[in-house]
Design a protein around this nucleic acid. Structure first.
Length: 561
RNA sequence: GCGCCCGUAGCUCAGCUGGAUAGAGCGCUGCCCUCCGGAGGCAGAGGUCAGGGGUUCGAAUCCCUUCGGGCGCGCCA
């Protein structure tokens, strides 16, 4: 409908230009927006105001001329001029009613599009190092990254989910030493316990399994424990596989699956770090100072120059980060989203600057970054502290076990990633109206229940009859719902374009609210078969869109609760 | 000190790439079940959109600035 209106307005503008009311050389972008209030019609445009200056006419005068030149269309019932010069469009009821048939025809495909045109796209997220179980922050990353990936898939992008981690660095060495200390029966803090060792109970579990010679299978590796307390390499390999496996279980319980696991160590093994150094050196933007090799990254928008190679000859993490993102480009991903905790925001400007310095055709501003702010967990109104080193923190799996996957995913996605998020465990656990995820799921279950009732009463929903009688839908609640349904594809497109999955959570809440209000205002199973089937067609369409939206969030749409 | 993010109702937060009288949930007050699931709905109170400048037909939204909070600012990852 938006595109229809935009076309009509453009035609009218062309006619005005022809008549000399408008200068011939203006080609304004016609904005059609949804109105906030029904009194303002269904859609509105502000072109008369934006063009008033170049046309040297008063906005309302211009609006009059434009409306006079507007071609008639059966879907357009009425046009009004209001306020400072808005042109308000009132659509014919049939135009709204048509959305119901569209939803029912398209089913789970409603809302999908091909905006991405099949372009190879990658979402990198979670990317936790295998030094412990995943915590709530990783959960937020997983919810955001996976939902984005689903949104991209729904809008025609060819998506790969990637998990990047380091299996060979300082932290991993520390992990191996911690497990070895546990193998030797040491407790955290005891003499001989490694400095900055991992103190969590899970280290003890790894030690026990290692000694027992167990085998461990993770999604990207498998290892048989050697049970030798002195073989630090073997301990490390086992511990990494063990924790990777634990993370796999967490992610699976969360409904998240990765296509690719990328190892930082492979960047070194495959010579990609060296190649990156050489390429950067060739840029003429590197220099030696204090015995270290620097990149003049300030030339590319960074706020200070960065050390590439330290005085001791080893590389800083800046280099593998650039090398890694270069591989993303080389592997053909043209849209890339890197999802990180906001505490890593410093790497953003550095990596982009490094990629520019490579001069390999990567556009400025590539890749997209989505940074999420901190998660605070509340239990009994008190903050639960998260401390990885000390152990005993709230893990993702604790949350899933306690509040369930649906509520966990929903709570972690419902806020804008830029905002800090308070995760109230007690609220998330509540199976009541206070809990938004139950409220939405209940709307879905409620429609299913009405359909069952219809069957029981021997008046099952007749979809064909419903479609033929859509003209019977004239209640304000019905109009509001049709409007909401019509908006859904646009919302999906915007959420995918702007990397804002939280919009979908808010939309679904509003749609559910519309359904509940309608339910209370009107009976559906009325004797008048035309009206009854028309109403059932409407709520069937609402159920379909709720299901489609929940699927994109990775949340189930139950038929009864 | 510098950079990024945030500041909207008592609380938690939306506000759809600048639009008309700023919204929702919870909490509070008062209503609504002979009816398809009351696990619901309706109405009301509650705001200097942190403060101050600017840009323009129009600003919660864009720019500058002050204040407050979070996170970064290492030849750690």
């Amino acid at each position: 409908m938006k595109t229809l209106l935009a076309r009509l307005v453009t035609e009218a503008l062309a006619a005005l230009a022809q008549a000399g009311t408008l200068p011939a050389d203006v080609h304004p972008e016609v904005q059609i927006e949804r109105t906030r209030e029904r009194a303002h019609g269904d859609f509105a445009t502000n072109v008369a105001m934006t063009l008033a200056k170049v046309a040297r006419r008063k906005p309302r005068e211009l609006a009059e001329a434009l409306v006079a030149a507007l071609p008639a269309h059966p879907q357009l019932a009425r046009v009004e001029i209001a306020g400072p010069g808005f042109i308000n469009f009132f659509m014919a009821p049939a135009a709204w009613q048509a959305v119901i048939a569209t939803v029912l025809d398209q089913g789970s495909a409603y809302g999908r599009s091909n905006a991405g045109g099949g372009v190879k796209t990658q979402v990198e997220f979670v990317s936790a190092n295998p030094t412990g179980p995943l915590h709530v922050g990783h959960g937020r990353a997983a919810a955001i990254g996976d939902t984005l990936a689903r949104l991209f898939e729904a809008t025609g992008w060819d998506v790969t989910r990637e998990f990047y981690y380091n299996d060979a660095g300082v932290q991993i060495g520390n992990l191996a030493l911690s497990v070895q200390a546990r193998i030797r029966g040491l407790e955290p803090g005891a003499p001989g316990w490694p400095e900055d060792g991992y103190r969590g109970e899970y280290i003890r579990d790894i030690a026990a399994d290692y000694l027992a010679g167990k085998a461990v299978v993770a999604d990207d590796r498998q290892v048989q424990a050697k049970a030798d307390p002195d073989d630090l390499d073997a301990i490390r390999d086992f511990a990494v596989a063990y924790l990777r496996h634990e993370q796999d279980l967490d992610l699976r319980a969360f409904g998240v699956a990765f296509d690719v696991y990328y190892l930082e160590s492979s960047l070194y093994a495959d010579g990609l770090v060296e190649r990156t150094v050489a390429r950067l050196a060739g840029s003429g933007r590197t220099y030696e100072s204090d015995g270290a090799l620097w990149l003049a990254s300030t030339a590319y928008g960074d706020d200070k120059d960065r050390v590439m190679r330290k005085r001791d000859g080893s590389y800083t993490y800046f280099l593998p980060d650039v090398a890694y993102h270069w591989t993303k480009w080389e592997r053909g991903y043209r849209r890339v989203v890197t999802e990180l905790g906001a505490d890593h925001h410093g790497s953003l400007a550095r990596v982009r600057a490094g990629l520019q310095a490579l001069d390999v055709g990567i556009p400025p501003g590539w890749p997209e970054y989505v940074l999420h702010q901190m998660v605070t967990v509340l239990r009994n109104g008190e903050e639960v502290k998260i401390s990885k080193r000390a152990g005993g923190y709230v893990t993702l799996r604790d949350l899933i076990d306690e509040v369930g996957r649906d509520a966990t995913r929903f709570f972690l996605i419902m806020r804008k990633s830029d905002s800090q998020l308070v995760f109230d465990i007690d609220l998330a656990k509540q199976q009541s109206l206070d809990n938004p995820v139950y409220y939405i799921q209940y709307a879905h279950a409620r429609v299913c229940s009405v359909m069952r009732q219809a069957d029981d009463k021997g008046i099952p929903f007749d979809a064909a009859a419903g479609r033929a009688s859509l003209g019977r839908l004239d209640d304000p609640h019905e109009e509001a719902l049709m409007l909401q349904l019509d908006r859904y594809p646009e919302l999906i497109a915007v959420a995918a374009r702007d990397d804002e999955p939280h919009l979908l959570a808010g939309y679904l809440r509003e749609l559910a609210q519309g359904l509940h209000a309608y339910y209370n205002a009107q009976p559906f199973l009325v004797d008048d078969a035309e009206r009854r089937n028309a109403r059932l067609a409407l709520i069937a369409a609402v159920r379909q869109v709720i299901a489609n939206g929940l699927t994109l969030l990775g949340v189930s749409a139950p038929e009864s609760m």
